[in-house]
C-alpha cells in the first residue's frame, strides 16, 4: 500500500506542481464588504435605466425586474453574463469586479430594443 502511494506521488509530480500553482493563483481573491445593489427594470423590452454606473473593481449585485409578460435573457459578452429573467419576475446577477470601461449588455430575446450598458468608473 505504502509502495503504491509512493508510486502514485512519484507519478504525479507534474500534476502536483500544477495543483500548487492553481492554489497559489486562487489566493489573491479579495473579500468585499457590503455588495452594492443596483435595480434594473425591463419594461416593453427596454432596460430602465439603460445605463448604469458602478465603481471600478467592485462586485455589484444587479437585481433585474422583468415587468413584461415575456421572458428575457440578460446577456453580455463583455461581462461574461447570461441569465434568463422570467416574465413578471426578478433575477439576481452578480457582476464585477471589473476594470474601468464600458460594458454593453442586451436582452438576447429582444436585442433590437433591449440594449444597455454598464459604465465602470
Amino acid at each position: 500500500m505504502n509502495y503504491f502511494i509512493n508510486h502514485v506521488c512519484h507519478f504525479f509530480r507534474f500534476q502536483i506542481i500544477i495543483f500548487i500553482t492553481v492554489f497559489v493563483l486562487l489566493i489573491p481573491v479579495q473579500v468585499y464588504a457590503g455588495t452594492p445593489i443596483i435595480h434594473i427594470e425591463i419594461r416593453n423590452h427596454l432596460f430602465i435605466p439603460s445605463e448604469i454606473i458602478i465603481p471600478k473593481e467592485t462586485k455589484v449585485k444587479l437585481i433585474i425586474h422583468n415587468k413584461d409578460e415575456t421572458d428575457e435573457e440578460f446577456e453580455s459578452y463583455e461581462l461574461n453574463r447570461e441569465k434568463v429573467i422570467v416574465g413578471q419576475r426578478k433575477g439576481v446577477i452578480f457582476i464585477g469586479p471589473l476594470p474601468s470601461g464600458v460594458y454593453p449588455f442586451f436582452g438576447e430575446f429582444f436585442p433590437k430594443t433591449a440594449q444597455g450598458k454598464v459604465i465602470v468608473k
Binding site: P28, V29, Q30, T35, E57, K59, K61, N80, R81, E82, K83, V92, I93, F94, I95, G96, P97, L98, P99
Partner: peptide, 15 residues
C-alpha cells in the same frame, strides 16, 4: 464555474 461566479457561489476576481 462562470455560472457559479455569477451566482456568487464562487469568489469573483478581476479578469
Amino acid at each position: 464555474s462562470l455560472l457559479l461566479i455569477q451566482a456568487d457561489w464562487l469568489p469573483a476576481q478581476l479578469p
